[in-house]
Amino acid sequence: MLRISNFDDWIDYFYGWQKDIGLDAPEFKEYRFEAKYGQVSPEIEFGDYHGQLRWKTVMHIPDQRIRDAAQNLVVYQGDTEFASVEQQRRLFETAPSRYDYLSLVRVMTEEMRHGWQMSHVLITQFGRSGRIEAQKLLERRAFTDDRLLGAFNQPVKNWLDFFTYTQFVDRDGKFQLTMLSHSGFLPLGRSMPPMLKEESFHLGTGNNGLQRIVKAGRIPIPIIQRYFNKWLPTSYDLFGTDHSSSAHWAYVWGLKGRYDERQSGADADKDNLNDTARRLYYEEVQKLTDTLNKLIPAEGAKIRVPDLRFNRQIGRNAGKFFDIDGQAMSKEEFEKYLPTVMPSEEDEKALESVFKEGGWIVPKGEGEFEPSEGARPRQ
């Protein structure tokens, strides 16, 4: 049943969602949630409408199929934002320091704002169907396994989990937001610059957190590796299926560009858009992991980036069996192998012990924390 008729109604529903998932503490109530729209180039940069002015409203979009696809992009992006908050909501009581506690608050409030942003686009642009979808964004729950993408139904159980998640899943988010920043649908494209600015802190939190963990040297590298094995294949899947017709038409219609749209001098391979973005992501992750490995003593085991074929749930490698190095295995071999390279109950118990002992992460002082713009006092 539709319970909202305007954005003010949705705001009331949003605060009810915060309370329902247990995140109505003062830090969240004091944050100034708002829709922010940045500046983008005025013309569509690619596809069949290349060179035309971006569409200022949904009614300027010339084809109902394109309108429907635009709404779908907004819905999926918004769903991931609220889902990530639900996944991480249990971490506050185990924060290793005040700095990390405040960082988690910032990450989560900004993810909430991103969901707020997508809901604002839905309600102000898409009429009744947009209001219905904006309401649904606050009704699905990650912890009841009904968010739209499987990666956003998995729990984030501890701080190693969190830092790995923000390093890899939020990095996928950076890729998605960048591709949407080129959108010919102006309200969507203009939503992206502020979101990307905020997302950079989330990526930095993950990358810096992993560096601090490796420098401390208390968590065994094999355990860290298993958390990489958990989140990286999931992140690969978030780019979508190979030879995706949805990605093809989103590009042709000017709704979603390439990650390197402005840098690439080549014509787009419209039949392999998702795989091209996924490979760029893999290259970036490999460089970050190489840097992380430099912090490990020379004689120590190194962290590996799982092969793009490992444990995939969608695309041409779904249902096929490869180890983390990309070596083919039989189904029987893989079923025995997989539990040995994924986080286990034993890993969780070992981490719990390390967390209690302390010294597992290089400390950072509260004074090093940079608050979100929305958390700053009004002038």
Rank of each mutant, 00 (worst) to 15 (best):
Q327D: 10
A277N: 09
E133P: 01
R131N: 13
M59R: 14
G319H: 05
P233F: 04
S183Y: 05
A216W: 10
E111S: 14
Y31I: 04
Q64F: 10
F175M: 10
M1E: 06
Q117W: 02
K331T: 03
S5A: 06
M59D: 15
E81S: 05
R128M: 15
V85Q: 05
L148I: 13
R67M: 08
L338G: 03
A375R: 07
L180W: 02
K331N: 06
S5Y: 02
N272T: 11
E27G: 02
E299C: 00
G16C: 04
S200I: 05
T289H: 00
E93Q: 14
G300F: 01
S5M: 01
G374E: 03
R171Q: 09
G204L: 12
Y76L: 12
M108G: 08
E199N: 11
E373W: 07
D68N: 14
V75Y: 12
L53C: 06
S246F: 13
V75D: 02
F369E: 04
L292F: 02
K136Q: 13
A134N: 06
E93Y: 04
L23I: 07
F92T: 09
L238F: 12
F322I: 10
T166P: 01
D68T: 12
R141P: 05
S200N: 09
F201K: 12
I21W: 03
S119K: 11
K287A: 14
L160Y: 06
E366C: 00
K19T: 08
Q125P: 05
I44W: 03
G265T: 13
G209F: 11
V107R: 14
D68Q: 11
T94D: 15
E261C: 09
V75A: 06
G184T: 01
G115S: 09
Y337E: 00
R262H: 13
F201L: 08
F163I: 11
Q154A: 10
R171K: 13
S200G: 05
A328W: 03
A134G: 13
Q135R: 14
I296C: 08
G22F: 03
F228Y: 14
E111W: 12
V58F: 01
E346C: 00
R54Q: 04
M192K: 08
S97K: 02
R32T: 07
R190C: 11
S129T: 15
D146A: 12
N274H: 12
E345L: 08
V121N: 14
N6R: 01
